[in-house]
């Protein structure tokens, strides 16, 4: 560092990149989130049609019925770019790790009552497969959506859902002393238990959905907003016998994640609704359709969780969903 710097003589010749300046103004330095997130996806002069979708371009607005004048308008209120995303999740996982270590070290799973164990086995662990589907669905959105902000948000949700599936798996491994038996049983329930079949059927239906924005509504709005209050929330609140507090610790990541992710989901929906009456109608119709399907699919699980107020929870979740989307500017009708 032998250079003698005379600060006055080295004013910058521009503040930021042209794409960032066009969006946020040229007169001030841009934030790292702004420079890293917007207008990155190729737009012009595509050379070849994809063999996997020969009617459209590699990146194509027409992969959803939603229309936007500016597909880069999907700003993330959390302002996540890669570094801030992994720093945030690293903090969350550090807390989760401490909880898992604590429960493991003190053998606290042994303090759970038989009823609590049964709840974990029959209501919680099969959700790892639902999380895997949610991972694939968000990966689909990241791959085939239009615009770099949406693709960015969706890939973070993709890896988040894998993380949640793995935390659920670890709860199972704590329970079965690392034999894996509880996970094998949970998979059998997901595949064959009559109470889980309607939800698996709906999940598989989401996996063949080709409109990525409809998938966003189905997975990230409707299914999440009903499943979290119905199946995750009973474990967050330390209900039941003595071990309840430990279950709250082990599922805290999922709870915190849900609140965090919802900020992004709501921002995207609010922006798309505000764009046009046509979008509003489309989002309303999709929400109504998937909400009806999901309520049917979840009814047997609500029954199974009757001792945890399952039916009441599901009804309350449906009302909360209506209120939530009303605030965002559309309705499930």
């Amino acid at each position: 560092m032998s250079v003698e710097i005379r600060v006055a003589s080295i004013d910058p010749i521009r503040q930021t990149f042209a794409r960032t300046a066009r969006r946020f103004g040229a007169d001030k330095p841009a934030s790292r989130y702004q420079e890293a997130s917007f207008d990155l996806q190729p737009r012009d002069n595509f050379h070849y049609r994809p063999v996997w979708d020969p009617q459209r371009d590699i990146y194509d607005r027409r992969r959803t019925a939603i229309e936007m004048r500016d597909w880069d308008d999907f700003r993330d209120p959390r302002q996540y770019y890669y570094a801030t995303y992994v720093l945030n999740r690293a903090r969350m996982q550090e807390a989760a790790e401490k909880s898992f270590e604590f429960v493991d070290k003190h053998g606290l799973m042994a303090t759970l009552s038989a009823a609590q164990v049964q709840d974990i086995e029959t209501l919680l662990l099969p959700l790892r497969h639902l999380e895997w589907a949610a991972n694939l669905n968000n990966c689909f959105i990241s791959a085939y959506c239009f615009g770099s902000p949406m693709a960015q948000g969706a890939i973070y949700t993709t890896t988040d859902r894998l993380g949640i599936a793995q935390y659920l798996s670890r709860i199972g491994l704590l329970l079965d002393g690392n034999s894996g038996q509880s996970l094998t049983d949970a998979k059998a329930r997901w595949l064959d238990d009559p109470a889980w079949q309607p939800l698996r059927r709906l999940t598989e239906r989401s996996l063949v959905q080709k409109d990525w924005f409809e998938l966003f509504v189905a997975q990230n709005l409707v299914l999440d907003s009903l499943i979290h209050p119905l199946l995750y929330a009973p474990f967050h609140s330390g209900v039941g016998d003595t071990g309840g507090a430990y279950l709250a610790m082990l599922t805290e990541f999922i709870k915190d994640w849900s609140a965090d992710n919802q900020k992004w989901v709501d921002a995207c929906l609010k922006i798309a609704t505000a764009e046009s009456p046509a979008n509003r109608a489309r989002l309303s119709a999709w929400t109504a359709e998937w909400k009806a399907l999901a309520l049917d699919a979840l009814a047997p699980l609500a029954q199974r969780a009757a001792h945890l107020d399952g039916p009441e929870r599901l009804a309350a979740a449906a009302r909360a969903l209506d209120q939530r989307i009303a605030k965002l500017g559309f309705e499930a009708a």
Binding site: E131, A165, S169, L173, K187, W190, R200
Partner: peptide, 13 residues
Amino acid sequence: QMTRGLGWDTSYE
């Protein structure tokens, strides 16, 4: 168990 076991062969679709 934590990863590979997550997938399943779909039967409704």
